[in-house]
Structures are given as C-alpha cells and as structure tokens.
Design a binder for these strands. Sequence first.
DNA 1: GGCCTTC
DNA 2: GAAGGCCAACGCTCT
DNA 3: AGAGCG
Length: 246
Amino acid sequence: MAVSRYGEPLELDVSGRAVRVSSPERVYFPEAGVTKIDLVRYYIAVADGAVRALRQRPTTLERWPNGVVEGAQLTQRDGTPGDAFYQKRVPRNAPDYVQTTRITFPSGRTADEICVTEAAVVAWAVNLGTITFHPWPVRGSDVDHPDELRIDLDPQTGTGFAEAVAVAGEARALLGELGWIGWPKTSGGRGLHIYVRIEPRWTFTQVRHAAIAFARELERRRPDLVTTSWWKEERGAKVFIDYNQN
DNA sequence: GGCCTTC
DNA sequence: GAAGGCCAACGCTCT
DNA sequence: AGAGCG
Ligand SMILES: [Mn+2]
Ligand SMILES: [Mn+2]
C-alpha cells in the first residue's frame, strides 16, 4: 500500500521527453494543499523562465523529498540529519538528457554537476523533490570564469520586499554610473537578485572583489538602508547585501 | 527519492 | 511484497 | 582552529 497512498507513478511528456513522476499525490505544501504533481506542473508551466535562469549552468539542487511539512528541516552543517539536503553531484542512473559539467572546487575536489539545458531536466529534478535550484554564476563552457556578477539583496528581520526594491533603486543608480546593466529578479520570499552580465574573463575571486566593492559603496551611500555585516547580530533592520553569493 | 539488501 | 539502511554540499569570513 | 554565515 506504500505506493497507492501517494498515487501511482505518472509519466509526463515534457517537450518530447518522458518524465516519470512518483508519488504524484503526495502533499508537498500542506498549508496550500499543493501536491508533488502540482509542483511538477507548476515548474513545467514556468519552464521558459526557469530554463532561461539555469541554462547551461551547473546547478545545485535543494531537495525536500518529504515535502515542506511541519518540522521538516535541512540537514545541518554539522551533519545533524534532516529531511532535506543540497545535492551537487548528479545521481547515478540519471536520464541521458541530463547533461553534466565537471566542476573543480578550490579544494581540488571535483564534482559532476547537473547542467540544466531544457524543461525536462527541471521536471526530472522536481520529481526528486527539488524545491529550489541554485545555479552557479558560470556556464558549462567555462566553469572558472563567471559570466554573471550577482548582487544578492536579503531583507533582514524588520524589512521586506519594499526595502529590497529601494536598495535596488540605489543599485541602479550606481550601475548607471559604472555603465553596467542590472537585471533584477525576485529571490526567495522577499529578496531580490540583480544580475550583471559580464565577460567570462575574470576569476571567481576577482568577481567577488568587485561585488564586495559594489556592496560597500551602497552601504556607504545608504547606511540607513544597507548592511554588509557578515554577523547577523550587527545587521539590524536593513537589507543585507550578500556579496559572498559570488 | 532511489537503490540496495534482507526477511 | 514489505521493510529497513544508506546516500544525497560546498566555501568564505571573522576572531 | 573554530564558529558563523550563505
Ligand atoms: Mn538572497
Ligand atoms: Mn544570500
């Protein structure tokens, strides 16, 4: 009876790829009454945008295969087991349309990471319980040189989307002074990302340094609105610019 | 969630 | 067929 | 090195 409780597996046609969905009736978001198949169909509905954000980027999966239910938590950094986890390496036996890219970490370790190329890859990952995709700021063709500088605006307690938008306005002014173009998108429940397309010409370290400088300048201009303090305790009710995202 | 082993 | 075990991330920052 | 953070 283990299978029928969550429904029999389905097979969806996603742009010509057959994608299996197990436990389609399993409730992933109890409060909203959203099931796993609902989530898969949602991601297929927004696949154009999702694939545009992920295309050819090595991508870490954030998987919640038991759903985002009361009490569920991510596996802790210290190894305390949880219900959810990040996954960098492509699982064995992934379908042949799932491309991978070999990443070398600063430590020298390597990983074959999922490289999203089409909607079916998104649907396949969601079937694994993926709720959130975390793309690297690089493309598979050059994994050592970011093609994107990211300005990550994280509203802290006491602030929200409106404050993030206000900081984005400040960022826009500074971007304009530099002759750069920023592309905003929502991120998480109330945050924003601003992506700046760059030539894949600089190292991670160089891009991070640019992002830090940018963030510190915004903090200098609007200390009432912006913080770049790494320590939560020192941030206050401001928008944290997380330069470490780069 | 998927795979493997064991009962 | 059912049930249980195991696996599924990484690095940077600051003191 | 160890704790704190994404
Ligand atoms: Mn963020
Ligand atoms: Mn962040």
